[in-house]
Amino acid sequence: MEGIGIWGVPLAIFAGAIRVSTPFIFVSLGESITERSGRINLGLEGTLVFGAMTAYAVAVMSNSPWLGVLAAMATGAVFGLIHGFICKFPKVNDIAIGIAMMQFGLGLAFFLGKPFIQPVAPHLPSIALGGWSSSPQIQSALNINVLFIIGALLAVALWWAFKNTRVGLILRVVGDSSDAARAMGLNPDTVRLLATAVGGSLAAVGGAYLSLFYPGSWNEGISSGQGLMAVALVIFARWNPIGCFLAALLFGGAGALGPALQSVGVTQGYYLFYAAPYVLTLVILVVTSSPTRSLAGAPGALSITK
């Protein structure tokens, strides 16, 4: 700890926020696309864990982490397609299907991933931005993974695309009103199916980050609920991709606060910091909700806001 002292805490939080937040970024961007189309996918936890397993297994077999990420994206899209296809039918509850798909994805990932717990997969590359410093803490804190950078760029790109492209407009129309979309000659079910598939493939990238970079191994406890939290994150971010990115950093930072405080001798009470993002989200939800109108900024056709 030479030369760092008390600065170790904010540095650890900063480094932790970047390290921990990457899966949140991808999962929440994916979920924001799905929810913008007017559907909610609660099954991203299963998709994320299955993506983590697929990426790890393919990386072990092919020795290429990027091939692993691509394979994870493909399986994530398949999970999204299944969810989107089933929810197309009347009387099917998208929330319940999401939880069932979560169970299914987890089960299948644990089943097929059993042989891959032992082998070691190659890691995703990261970019060392801390070369200027001689301090190992700063160097490791600024060792930023490529996926984090891709996630940040993707957030900006999506934010722009929602506003300025034809695809973004189609997505928003379908999400706000199925009837308006039909009047435009669009098929809402098809748009939602594709949006759920894209959302699933992004969630799987978040999983690939978990197994191929941090913590960088495959086991059954790899996810700590990042997929399930995506729904909360997206609401916190008001369905705005850049908001998703910032919210992911906040959630990641809150999670990193505990271990950082522990390292300087604070051993009690830090569990409450884990709860901070959820308390904040809940407060925002309470403040912005009203019994007489639906949630501000939410897609009109979303089942959770009616």
């Binding site: 929330i95 609920g225 399930l228 939290m229 729904v231 909360a232 609401i235 009470g269 569990y271 409450l272 884990y274 709860a275 959820y278 308390v279 989200t281 809940l282 939800l285 309470v286 909700s289 009203s290 019994p291 007489t292 109108r293 949630l295 959770i304 806001t305």
Partner: peptide, 25 residues
């Protein structure tokens, strides 16, 4: 849900995480 119009699905999910943090505390 009733007095503030807060979606019960999301609120209960958030509160489950808060509850687990409280338990750990």
């Amino acid at each position: 849900r009733h007095y503030r119009g807060v979606n019960e699905t999301i609120a209960s999910l958030l509160m489950a995480y808060i509850a687990i943090a409280l338990m750990n505390h």
